[in-house]
Simulated assay, not measured.
Amino acid sequence: MPTDLTAQTLLLEGTDAIAFAQAQFTSDVQSLDVGRWQFGAWLDAQGRVLALFQLARITDDALLLLLRGGDASSMAQSLQRFVFRSKVKLRVPEPCALATGPAHETYAVHREGDAYVFGCGGHSMIVGATEADDAWRLPQVRAGWPWLPNDALGNLLPPALSLERLQAVAFDKGCYPGQEIVARLHYRGGHKRHMHCVVLSQPIRGGTVLHHKGNSNIQLLDVAGDDATFEALAVIDDGLVDSLQNASNIDTDENIALRVVQSWTA
C-alpha cells in the first residue's frame, strides 16, 4: 500500500505506444478510448503479476499508468528491453501527491491543470494533487481494487487478485508475457488462492503474511480503516477457507482474527 501517499506513474508516448502496451500488458489496450482508463497488469513468463495499474489513454498516442504498487523506474527499465525498433518512449514523471476527489464516472479520466483525475464512481483519485490524503483507500478495499505491497510483486497469479472480474485480462487478443498461463487458468481452472475483503481484529501493516496452524496461508494486501474498524484485502488459500466450520472467521497464529465479508473467485 502507498504509505507515503505519493503516486508513481509511467508514461508511454509515441506512434507505437498503444501497440507496444497491447503486446506487453494483460488488458485490451487497443479498445481503450481517449479519456478512459482500465485496469491492467504486467506479468512475468510464469504468469505472476509484476505490476498492477490503472492505465489511462490520455491522447491518441499516449498512455499514463498509475501504478498500484511497485516502482515506476524499475518497471520502465525492464520494459525498455522490449522496445527494440518500436516508436515508443518510456518516461517516469516525478512522484506526486495522490488525493481523493469528488464523484466521477468510473473509468473516465481527464486533466485538471497539471493533475489527472481518475473517475472511480463515488469518488475520484487526483494524481498530482496539491495535498495528499487517503480517503479513497477504504471504498477501494471494499470494492476489491487491490494495491500490491512490495512483498506480493512477482508472487501472485491473476486469479488471486480477481483480475478477470476487474476486466484487467483479455482472453481474445494476441500474446503477451504470461498469456499461456492466464489462458490455462481461465479455461481449466485449478488455482487455489483467491482474494477476500476481511475485517481485522486490530490494525496491522499491509503486506503482512499471517499464518494458520504454522502455514503461511494469508497474504494481506492493502489495509484501510479508522479508529474503530480495520478492513483489508487478503489473498487466502482456498484449502484454509474450505476447512473451517465457520468460513467467515479465521484465527491466526499471530492472535489476529479475520472476518471475511466479501469473496471473489476470479
Rank of each mutant, 00 (worst) to 15 (best):
L5H: 15
L10F: 13
L10N: 13
L10C: 13
L10A: 13
L11K: 07
L12E: 08
Q22T: 12
S27D: 10
Q30I: 06
V34R: 14
V34W: 07
W37V: 06
Q38F: 02
G40V: 06
A41W: 08
R48Y: 09
A51Q: 14
A51Y: 10
L52I: 06
F53V: 07
A56W: 06
R57L: 06
L65G: 02
R68T: 01
G70L: 03
G70N: 04
A76R: 03
Q77C: 01
K87C: 02
R91I: 07
R91C: 03
V92Y: 06
P93Q: 07
E94T: 14
E94F: 04
G101T: 10
E105D: 15
A108D: 14
A108C: 12
H110E: 14
F118I: 08
D133P: 09
L138C: 01
R142C: 00
A143I: 00
N150V: 04
A152T: 00
L156E: 02
L161S: 01
L166W: 06
Q167H: 13
F171A: 05
K173M: 09
K173R: 15
P177H: 11
R184N: 08
Y187P: 03
R193K: 15
M195Y: 06
C197F: 02
C197M: 14
V199E: 15
R205H: 12
G206N: 11
L210S: 07
K213S: 12
N215Y: 04
I218D: 05
Q219E: 02
L220S: 02
L220Q: 01
D222I: 00
D226I: 05
D227K: 11
A228F: 07
F230P: 01
L233K: 02
A234P: 02
A234N: 04
L244V: 09
L244F: 11
Q245D: 14
N246M: 13
E254K: 07
T265Y: 14
A266N: 14
